[in-house]
Design a protein around this nucleic acid. Structure first.
Length: 558
RNA sequence: GCGCCCGUAGCUCAGUGGAUUGAGAGCAACGGACUUCGGAUCCGUAGGUCGGAGGUUCGAAUCCUUCCGGGCGCGCCA
């Protein structure tokens, strides 16, 4: 693409200056931006200002040195120094036409790159405990993790989406859930029952108990002892049903995992045991009060952490360290964890634990998303899973639709709190931003249909004479096409799908403006019509590609 | 008390590894545009001391310090 070529040219010029001794060697990243006004050029670069300190030269002199060393090529028409020392580049006029042509030729591949080729990345997200339906509180990680995975794939990485099932035998919550299901099963069977203290009291536990009885029969379930080992057994049986439910709910949002990883496997495969032995050999653990502690303070944590409780149960940190080993053994170069804010405090412990175990913490990346709250009638909807007062993700999707759900959840920066206004989503779902974007896509589809109905070909549009596109609104659309691949890469590197959400709205607006001033189908001007058909077709492709990254449908009609 | 996140237009939010850039969008409000490709659209008006105060710089919504306000965490639970 043009911006990449230009960056390379500047880099060449810098090397030439360094070799000639006119400028010092420089490690500053070359960043291109758009000048404030179109007549100032197509790209500007601030490298001269940023280098002037180290070079001990005036910025404008640095800029001149770079310009003098710039290799000749067909891309750059001319360049000039502006303001305090910016270099403005005017490119040859065909570069925008080339961008449009690239969109038409590459289709859904336009915007992808090979920047991340050769790096295998895992994105683990949601990973809610398999102890009930997904609720709105853990809904955010789903679309976010999935969209980040999409972005990383677009950037050329090999990506795997994984859901970690916290179903370990030492997982207090999991076994407690088993006990709660056990109680409900006994209730249905007419036996004496008691829901454990702090157990799961929600109605949905009864539903799961019923489903279990249907699947396995009263005889088998009734024979399971009502003791800790029975609770564990019951939890494992219930897990199948719960996970099915979770999987279906996420599938409603278009989320498909390549891997569902059972924490229990870490115990059965001996990964946990091996990790403990390894840590002992390294001398980074000690016994205290009957528990096994890890010296995480030696590696930057605030206090030491327990790995094995005095009752023999392994802690979350213990299994997490074993889990990292398993991931790395599976060949991932980089492991992204998408966690809720309630887990933020664990990150330093896990990183310190990895360092203590001689594993480079940099292979992991923890992304903490902030909370989602539902508001209704101006009030925050209170939720408590154990008390059973929850709004499930499934209910939300059924109420406002998958596209609206995803777009709402993806529209905000992952760092920002998100209030999901139920009334607004329900009442005004037809005026949603997602609708605006989808409408642009449907409208272009309609234009292309109409063109064909009037006898204009929409085949081989990349051969159209794009030099006919000179209107300011046409130029803006073309510029949009040219900038798009860089935006995708940027969003991928920043793990910021919300940028794509905002950009999709911007492209839709740019198209709608163009539509207001430029008539596409004009049988009196077939060549111009063909060029404009090429342009809107390219715009449609990019809209569809953005919606694809977000996991939102791109309808031909609405 | 400590840690993390947030504070930008009436509301919901972008922009925050400094720079020719002077602060943007949607919704809501007000005024316009359909004999023409989808009006679920477009054009225009109005609306902000970028939470406050210092500091660094030629230049700060953006970086540093501090204070205020809101959220979330801080277990031998996960």
């Amino acid at each position: 693409m043009a911006d990449q070529q230009l960056t390379d040219l500047i880099a060449q010029a810098l090397r030439a200056c360094a070799d000639a001794g006119t400028l010092p060697a420089c490690e500053i990243e070359i960043a291109l931006e758009q000048p404030p006004k179109p007549e100032m050029g197509d790209f500007s670069c601030n490298i001269a200002l940023r280098m002037s300190g180290e070079a001990q030269m005036k910025p404008r002199d640095v800029a001149q040195a770079i310009i003098d060393a710039l290799p000749a090529c067909g891309l750059v028409d001319r360049c000039e120094i502006a303001g305090p020392g910016f270099i403005n580049f005017h490119l040859s006029p065909t570069w925008l036409q080339d961008a449009v042509r690239d969109v038409l030729l590459l289709g859904e591949r336009y915007g992808t790159s090979t920047a991340g080729a050769g790096t295998k990345v895992q994105v683990e997200f949601v990973s809610a405990n398999p102890v009930g339906p997904l609720h709105v509180g853990n809904a955010r990680g789903g679309p976010y993790g999935d969209a980040v995975a999409n972005l990383l794939e677009a950037a050329g990485h090999e990506v795997e989406r994984e859901y970690l099932l916290n179903d370990g035998p030492d997982n207090t919550q999991f076994v407690l859930f088993g006990a709660s299901v056990q109680a409900r099963v006994r209730e249905i069977l007419g036996r004496e029952f008691e829901i454990p203290e702090n157990g799961y009291r929600g109605e949905y536990v009864i539903d799961f108990a019923r489903a279990l009885l249907e699947r396995h029969g009263a005889e088998k379930l009734g024979a399971i002892p009502n003791d800790p080992s029975g609770h564990d057994e019951m939890a494992l049986l219930a897990e199948e049903v719960v996970v099915e439910h979770i999987r279906e709910t996420l599938a409603m949002l278009g989320i498909e995992y390549q891997s569902w990883f059972s924490e229990r496997k870490l115990f059965e495969a001996g990964t946990v045991g091996a990790k403990i032995e390894d840590l002992r050999r390294r001398g980074v653990v000690y016994e205290k009060d009957g528990a096994l502690w890890l010296r995480t303070t030696d590696f930057g944590d605030e206090e030491d952490r327990v790995l094995v409780r005095s009752n023999g149960a392994k802690t979350y940190l213990m299994t997490d360290l074993a889990y990292v080993d398993d991931k790395l053994a599976r060949g991932f170069d980089h492991c992204i964890y998408v966690w809720g804010p309630d887990h933020a405090a664990q990150v330093p412990s896990v990183k310190a634990g990895m360092a203590a175990a001689g594993v480079d913490p940099a292979v992991t990346e923890f992304i903490i998303h902030q909370i989602v709250r539902l508001t209704e009638g101006g009030e925050i909807v209170k939720m408590s899973k154990r008390a059973g007062k929850i709004v499930t993700l499934r209910q939300l999707i059924e109420e406002v639709g998958a596209d609206v759900t995803r777009f709402f959840l993806l529209s905000r920066s992952v760092d920002a709190h998100l209030d999901f206004d139920l009334d607004l989503a329900r009442k005004e779902s037809e005026e949603n931003p997602v609708y605006y974007v989808q409408y642009a896509h449907a409208r272009i589809s309609s234009i292309l249909r109409e063109a064909r109905a009037k006898g204009l070909s929409t085949e081989d549009l990349h051969e159209a004479d794009l030099s006919l596109l000179q209107h300011a609104d046409e130029m803006r659309l073309m510029r949009w096409m040219a900038d798009y691949p860089g935006e995708v890469l940027d969003a991928a590197m920043r793990r910021a799908p919300h940028r794509i959400a905002h950009l999709s709205r911007d492209l839709a607006a740019t198209f709608h403006q163009f539509y207001g001033t430029c008539r596409v189908i004009d049988l009196e001007a077939p060549e111009l019509s063909r060029a404009r058909l090429a342009l809107v077709s390219a715009a449609r492709t990019v809209l569809a590609n953005m919606l694809g990254l977000l996991g939102i449908s791109a309808p031909e009609t609405m």
